[in-house]
Amino acid sequence: MDILNALVAFTNFVVVPATAYGSQLALGALGVTLIYGVLRFSNFAHGETMSFGAMVVVLVTGLFQSWGLSLGALPTALLALPFGILATALLLLLTDRVVYKFYRKVKAVPVMFVIVSTGVMFVMNGLVRMVVGTDDRRFSDGARFVINAREFKAWSGLNEGLALKTTQVITVVVAMITVAALFWFLNKTRTGKSMRAFSDNEDLALLSGINPERVVMITWLLVAALATIAGTLYGLDKSYKPFIFQQLLLPVFAAAIVGGIGNPLGAVAGGFVIAFSEVTLTYAFKKVVTYLGPDSWAPDGLVQLLSTDYKFAVSFAILIIVLLFKPTGLFKGQSI
């Protein structure tokens, strides 16, 4: 029995990565949920929006690096983030003006919007590939670790090391700041409240003199910021790969729906539910079990419930279970 080593191994391989991944999903799901709440459709182009934002950040980061600009121990990408948000905001406002506005005017049904957003997804996807191609890019610089596994072993005297990457810490901190700022905006400011009012009861919001076009514009601006931050954090943590974002769409939607779509608090909770489920179910528990049981009980297999290839099946399964048994999600969202 070696509870301490088991705990460290579990923290190192499950808790830390899942927390970082959960923060990224939460930010992505917040964008999806805002669009659903205000514009009333599931935006399938959200993954590509994240990709576009991250791409701009990658390019601007490269430019800054060539100028010798850096933030020391922190990644240069943080400095490039505002530019990514700005570019994404312009892209989304342009898309709204050229595409979505027309369908709002003719009062198209939500499923029409979903199909239109799928078209937008392909266009954005092509745009990103035209600009940067499909290659994998690493763009994180600065200090690599906050806690190094080897140093942790030497310090604690344990067999198991605990590593904490700078990008993981930054992911969680930036996500916390972003979520706090968003909730402050939605709950305390007049504009934020008018967005919630519009999402709650569109007709009554109109009667109260709330300008729908302004609400829509502000929603896109917030979505641009959320998507760019989510995409950049995901890219910093892993690497920037344009193809990955289409796959990321599934866990992001699963997070939004599990939490209760249209409910921002639910999106955050859903992000962590999905991330922890994915990581826990695909983690090989052999080490942890070996530490916990008597020596002779050490398992021969990996004690892994699912191969990591199936990680998307986890979010898909959770998504279906939630839709079947609790369509409004864990927190009271709108039913799909």
């Binding site: 409240k193 919630r196 009012a197 109260s208 709330i210």
Partner: peptide, 20 residues
């Protein structure tokens, strides 16, 4: 029917009434 903002507090409902 549908004459309130259900997920907003009562006070916020009044504030939204005075939006103009």
């Amino acid at each position: 029917t549908h004459n309130i903002f259900p997920t907003m507090t009562v006070r916020e409902n009044l504030e939204m009434g005075a939006f103009i």
